[in-house]
Computed example of a mutant assay.
Amino acid sequence: MTVKKSTPSAAVLNWMPVAAMAVVAVVDIVAGPNVGFLPLVSLGPAFAGLVGGWRRTALIGLVALLLCLGLGLYNGLFDSSRGYSAMASVAGVTGVGVAAAVMRSRREAELASVRSIAEVAQRVLLRPVPLAAGPLQAAVSYTSAVAEARIGGDLYEVVASPHGVRVIVGDVQGKGLAAVETAAVVLGAFREAAYDEPDLMRLGERLERSVAREPDDEKFVTAILAEIGRAGPAVLLNYGHPAPLLVHRDGKSDFPQPPAYALPLGLTAHDGPGPEPYHVDFAPGDQLLLYTDGVTEARDDQGGFYPLGERADQLLKDPDAHRALDALREDLVRHAAGPPHDDAAMLLLRYQGHGEAPLRP
């Protein structure tokens, strides 16, 4: 069982009501009854209503009332209306604090419910990639630029189809919910077409039509498709996306460039050149890293971009693809200055051998 440890800031907030009442009591005793510090005892339930539950707020309010009663009797304030007004002040603040704590608890419960639904939707959209597909070991890393979000405008998928292992990594133009919606459209079309289409070009055309049917005709998606069969080189199809990083078994690395960069998905109305499939030697022991521009455009505090090619050796330090990709991601986080300004997705394919292991979730 995992025990959650409270942070120092949380501990300070929890003890603040007690500390406030203790300070007020000491100052009131030292200063005497003529200064009028007694109503400040209500600071205890006021702070409790901001950070605690309603039961704790009510308990601290009761303690504050007893403290106010004791100090009022000690100072002889109940001979006039001062003692009763101080008690009324503490009781009123306690009531308001309890009401605030109840409302905050309800909002937190609603937020937790909404967040759980969002997490389920995120897992449906970006499912975990298979640990192994044919001869490949796959690992993925995703960092969203939106706080508290696990997904954004970047997308990835690995499908073990009858035509080979097919992979997509893409980047939707823009951010926010509109980008997530477009990413869902592309992923849905890819998951279906990857099984049906025997030709990678036909698969790309299916994706193009799915994006072109979107109501926002200015929305586009840069993407790279890959097909790795049981034998022979990998086939790539690039729609205006950064070239992948190929790390060979001997440690050499390069960025295989397409014959010509095509327009992104969704921009066929501009009559630009279509993509041309090209082959890349991908042998046992090699690694292919597909990524989005949030990786290579991450800047350090001097404004320098992340040198992905120079850090390719990170992928050779661990025999496990997931740990190797985690090391590369940690290196990227150390390089970047502050929080990420763009979504960053990385999908690593490691060629283990010519085995024909079935797809394992």
Results as ranks from 00 to 15, higher is better:
Asp199Arg: 08
Val185Met: 03
Ala100Tyr: 12
Arg166Asn: 03
Pro33Ile: 09
Glu310Asn: 15
Arg104Leu: 11
Gly266Cys: 09
Ala193Phe: 01
Leu225Phe: 04
Pro307Asp: 05
Asp254Pro: 09
Gly170Leu: 02
Ser105Met: 15
Ala160Asp: 14
Val235Cys: 15
Ala357Gln: 13
Leu126His: 00
Ala357His: 10
Leu290Tyr: 03
Gly229Leu: 06
Asp28Trp: 15
Val221Met: 12
His248Phe: 09
Ser80Leu: 04
Val167Asp: 04
Leu245Trp: 05
Ala324Tyr: 03
Arg104Glu: 12
Ile29Glu: 14
Gly309Arg: 08
Leu245Phe: 01
Asp250Trp: 10
Ala31Gln: 13
Pro264Cys: 06
Pro264Arg: 07
Val12Ser: 08
Ala10Ser: 04
Arg350Ser: 08
Gly61Ile: 06
Tyr195Lys: 00
Val3Ile: 13
Ala262Lys: 04
Ser253Val: 01
Gly240Glu: 06
Val333Met: 07
Val96Thr: 06
Ile151Cys: 06
Lys5Val: 15
His341Phe: 11
Ala336His: 03
Leu245Lys: 07
Val18Thr: 14
Phe190Trp: 04
Ala212Glu: 14
Ala262Ser: 06
Leu65Cys: 06
Gly174Ser: 05
Gly176Lys: 14
Tyr84Asp: 12
Tyr84Asn: 10
Gly251Asp: 08
Pro128Asp: 02
Tyr261Gly: 14
Tyr351Arg: 11
Thr182Tyr: 08
Ala118Met: 11
Leu237Lys: 03
Arg249Tyr: 07
Ser116Trp: 12
Pro130Gln: 02
Ala138Lys: 03
Val3Tyr: 15
Ala160Phe: 02
Gly76Tyr: 06
His248Ala: 11
Val63Trp: 08
Ala337Tyr: 14
Arg106Thr: 05
Gly309Cys: 09
Pro258Met: 10
Tyr74Val: 09
Ser144Pro: 01
Ala132Cys: 15
Pro17Thr: 02
Gly153Pro: 00
Pro258Trp: 06
Tyr351Asp: 12
Ala260Glu: 15
Ala324Leu: 01
Thr7Ala: 06
Pro256Asn: 05
Arg213Asn: 06
Val124Cys: 11
Pro339Asp: 15
Tyr142Gln: 04
Ala91Gly: 04
Val124Gly: 15
Ala22Gly: 02
Glu310Tyr: 02
Gly303Ala: 02
Asp286Gln: 11
Leu349Trp: 03
Gly285Cys: 10
Arg202Lys: 13
Val146Phe: 13
Gly303Trp: 09
Asp271Thr: 09
Arg106Met: 11
Gln122Ser: 12
Gly70Thr: 15
Pro264Ala: 08
Ser116Met: 12
Phe37Cys: 10
Pro319Ala: 12
Val280Gly: 07
Glu310Met: 10
Arg299Val: 08
Ala121Glu: 07
Ala31Arg: 13
Glu108Asp: 14
Leu265Asn: 07
Leu38Glu: 02
Leu125Ile: 04
Gly134Met: 00
Arg323His: 12
Glu218Val: 04
Ala88Cys: 04
Leu315Tyr: 00
Leu13Asp: 11
Ala327Cys: 05
Val280Ser: 08
Ile168Phe: 10
Pro233Trp: 09
Ala88Asn: 04
Arg202Ser: 14
His335Pro: 00
Arg82Gln: 07
Tyr195Gly: 03
Val30Arg: 12
Val41Met: 14
Tyr351Ala: 05
Pro215Gly: 03
Val41Asn: 05
Gly36Val: 05
Ala184Asn: 08
Arg127Lys: 15
Leu315Phe: 04
Asn238Ala: 05
Ala58Ser: 08
Asp154Gln: 01
Ala109Leu: 13
Ala312Val: 00
Arg104Ser: 07
Gly204Arg: 10
